[in-house]
């Protein structure tokens, strides 16, 4: 019998305490970017998200909830966490100051430290570590620029960039410890 307390077609399920990865959830909160723990699940982020408009399996609201509870498995599923376009629409409108876009970036950083980075972002980051920009300064680009009357691309000070990045973990994350030696 369907009483008034029954919620039809519910997708919800009971979460067991054993499933919760409290270490993960603590590291998201402690990173200090945004305030995930004050989220009251209003869904303004979801309603504002351009990704969710086209793919309902992606939801910033669910991501924040999963991160706060430590439902790490859900965050690792199907590359969903890498779909955020960093458009900041959620951060702009969140009535609680959660800053979901920044929290999602933090979650990605933590997942990266666990050893997984989406291939496309890994390629971008690797180029920046090696060349100081998203692409190597190719000679043909300077030829095009020259033909247009533009000066050559100003060279990145790669030695300084390498020195700066030595003091972060990015090369380790990318498996690029000896990037300076590569062409």
């Amino acid at each position: 019998m369907q009483g008034w307390l029954t919620v039809p077609n519910t997708q919800g399920r009971v979460v067991s305490l054993d499933e919760l990865d409290s270490e993960f959830s603590e590291s998201v909160v402690k990173a200090g970017r945004g305030k995930p723990s004050v989220c009251f699940q209003c869904g303004t982020c979801a309603a504002s998200c351009p990704i969710m408009k086209f793919d309902e399996t992606y939801s910033p609201r669910t991501i924040i909830r999963s991160a706060v509870l430590g439902l790490t498995d859900r965050l690792l599923k199907r590359d969903l966490i890498w779909l955020c376009a960093a458009c900041y629409s959620c951060t702009e409108r969140c009535p609680r100051g959660v800053r979901p876009a920044e929290v999602i970036s933090t979650i990605r950083n933590i997942i990266a430290r666990k050893g997984y980075i989406h291939q496309s972002l890994k390629m971008q980051a690797t180029a920046i570590v090696r060349y100081g920009r998203l692409w190597k300064d190719e000679e043909f680009v300077n030829e095009i620029r020259g033909d247009m009357g533009l000066p050559p691309i100003s060279a990145v000070d790669l030695q300084e960039v390498a020195k700066v990045l030595e003091h972060t973990k990015v090369k380790e994350l990318l498996g690029e410890q000896d990037a300076e030696d590569k062409p």
Partner: peptide, 18 residues
């Protein structure tokens, strides 16, 4: 701006500090 690099944004998804 001699010697400037990428602004850094594209590293944010992997390592905020970098």
């Amino acid at each position: 701006l001699e010697g400037a690099s990428c602004c850094g944004f594209s590293l944010d998804a992997i390592d905020h500090l970098s």
